[in-house]
Design a protein around this nucleic acid. Sequence first.
DNA 1: AATCCGGGGGC
DNA 2: GCCCCAGGATT
Length: 345
Amino acid sequence: MSFSHKILDWYHTHKRELPWRETRDPYKIWLSEIMLQQTRVAQGMPYYHRFLEAFPMVHDLAEAQEEKVLKLWQGLGYYSRARNLHATAKMVVEQFGGKFPHTYKELKSLKGVGDYTASAIASFCFDVPEPVVDGNVYRVLARYFGVDLPINSPSGIKYFKELAREVMDAEQIRDYNQGIMEFGAIQCAPKKPYCLLCPLNEGCVALKENKVDSLPIKNNKTKVRVRHFNYLVYLDIHNNTLLEQRKGKGIWQNLYQFPLVESEKEMNPDEMEHYLKSEGNPQLLDMAIPYNPDPIIHKLSHQHLHTKFWIVKTSDILEEGTAWEEVTQFPVPVLIADFIRTLKI
DNA sequence: AATCCGGGGGC
DNA sequence: GCCCCAGGATT
């Protein structure tokens, strides 16, 4: 039996029932695919249901305020996905008459839709014979066929895409694509796959050559940048505080946060007092009290954010401020949301 | 080709 | 602590 038929056989026996597998509605498929980029099914699932409840159709999403989209996306990370999601919904409504395009090329022109996602939507919704190559597929192909090219090098990416196309089942592309990804997620898992009962163990090169633990090969370890964040949590006598929206490039674009002072190293109360005076803030007579004397280390893929929250009880009236009871309505990073949750006023 | 972009879970 | 997760965009 061929590679693809073994995958299909395994899939029909072992597949999980997932909501986006019960439909061919491109809106739902697209939504699930964007959410599942670099995200586990279990993490994305509740977001998928909340989005469909809030935005049943692509028109609803297109008409929404970006802030509402970001708020629903809060906690899922990679927030450019949410901004691109919103932009693409508008694009589909305005340029494609509310219908998702059917071709790989047109799908790939949508914001946030790359090679993998375009192939996924085209094959799942419209039976277009395009192979998907995600992290699961890289692992299955690298092990079964013994490919030692780095999966994140241009030559490796090209090679795996061509290999995926050669071994796919074009006649059953929907189930085959779902199947090889599911096989990678469940059977050919990253760590300690149970090769003894794998239906593909007979022809598996990695198993034969004892390379299961070393394939696939991936280079370029990410190096982490350490940053020091100081958030100024202003509170006036009415319990109003100040929020600002992050603009420009970098992390958390368009999300909200407290006024931020970034420093080269950890700041102590004297340094903070000096800073506030030097900035000529009107609350120079007020005190900034560290809420957490030991910095919270919030870890992102490329950054470790050593963060102190400073409570600044000001005698000013924050006319432009936000009532504390309303801060939970803004889209904020998890770092901020966790703090808001723990602070008792 | 290299880097950036989140947060969570498993071991 | 390290790796991975239904990747994509930018430089």
